[in-house]
């Protein structure tokens, strides 16, 4: 496998009327081509902001940390995304090497322009295709994502398509520019389970066929288990646990990941009680010092949790967790 994306020490603050908010705090991860990485967390955990940072799509009040580094490895050499400034420069990634699909496909299509016209428009902007060729490619893509009668759908408006169909059209549009990296922000959340299963299958197929990488954002651990190769769990702007999906979900090690899984209603065990994570997620204006999860953690150890930021400790190969419990173990072992 070849490395596609490296994110190192990504930090992102927002300047708001109420003060400066840290949305993403020292986040690092990497992605290989042909791999799906899941980014999981509750609302407010910073997963969407992290993904948008890959295209520098965040609002103008965002302030990137000095050490933040995002490198996209393309065939003709690495691209340092943080150094791109103007809209013109950013076109290398926006709509070029990176495409994005969103949660609410109705809100992402212009309502008064046909699906086809929107697909052709972006091809004309981002590629050197002729209008005729662009139309051909678009219809082919619609067909590829499983939309029957693609040439009719091509001429229709977003409101004429059902939710699942719109999401397929959205995926077709995102893939028609042949991106190297696809960011999918809760792409199945608004869909029914049966349609969700179809879209998940489609995305897995596409990764195989196109060999791109996908950053898959979701709050649903079940969806992650079924799609992703690796996963990073985020809480209040920090990655608290990351690793191969089997290890993270099979052997959740951070108290937060454990809490998420215990809170999940499971069909294989109807008798197990649902255990909520105690307390509420703190306001971003009152981010706890030390470990961000310390205010709700059931394994709270004492001052080190509320003062020191925990470092990543390996649980097993590639499976990393940022929690003082394991740091202690390691220190104990080295003595």
């Amino acid at each position: 496998m070849t490395r596609l994306l490296d994110v190192e020490n990504l930090t992102l603050d927002f300047d708001t009327d109420e003060g400066r908010i840290t949305a993403v705090d020292n986040v690092s991860f990497s992605l290989e081509a042909g791999e799906i990485m899941g980014l999981v967390g509750e609302s407010g955990s910073g997963k969407s902001v992290t993904a948008k940072a890959l295209m520098k799509l965040n609002a103008s009040n965002s302030i990137y940390g000095g050490d933040s580094k995002i490198t996209l490895h393309l065939a003709n050499g690495p691209v340092d995304i943080m150094s791109l400034q103007t809209a013109k420069e950013l076109q290398v990634v926006r709509g070029g090497a990176i495409s994005m699909i969103f949660q609410e496909p109705m809100a992402s299509f212009a309502p008064a322009i046909t699906i086809g016209a929107q697909m052709v428009e972006q091809l004309l902007i981002h590629t050197s295709m002729s209008a005729l060729k662009a139309q051909e490619v678009s219809i082919e893509m619609l067909d590829r994502v499983g939309i029957s009668d693609a040439s009719t759908r091509f001429k229709q408006y977003a409101f004429e398509l059902s939710g699942g169909m719109r999401q397929r059209a959205m995926i077709a549009m995102a893939l028609s520019t042949n991106p190297k990296l696809l960011i999918a922000d809760e792409p199945t959340t608004a869909l029914d389970v049966t349609i969700q299963a179809q879209v998940i299958d489609l995305m897995k197929d596409l990764v195989k066929d196109f060999g791109m990488g996908i950053v898959f954002i979701t709050h649903d651990l079940g969806v992650i288990a079924q799609t992703a190769d690796t996963v990073a769990v985020m809480y209040l702007g920090r990655v608290v646990e990351k690793g191969p999906v089997r290890q993270v979900i099979g052997n959740p090690s951070h108290p937060y990941t454990q809490g998420l899984i215990k809170a999940l209603p499971r069909l294989d065990d109807l008798d197990s009680p649902l255990t909520p994570i105690p307390g509420d997620i703190p306001s971003p204006l009152e981010r706890p010092d030390g470990c961000v999860f310390s205010t709700r953690c059931s394994s709270f150890l004492g001052p080190q949790c509320s003062v020191d930021v925990p470092k990543f400790t390996p649980i097993s190969h590639d499976h990393m967790v940022a929690c003082h419990i394991y740091q202690q173990d390691q220190q104990g072992a080295s003595k």
Partner: peptide
């Protein structure tokens, strides 16, 4: 029932997909 994503990555859904 079969469309609900399982937490087990190796669980192949037994029933048909719609």
């Amino acid at each position: 029932l079969s469309a609900i994503p399982s937490l087990d990555p190796d669980a192949k859904s037994l029933a048909q997909k719609l």
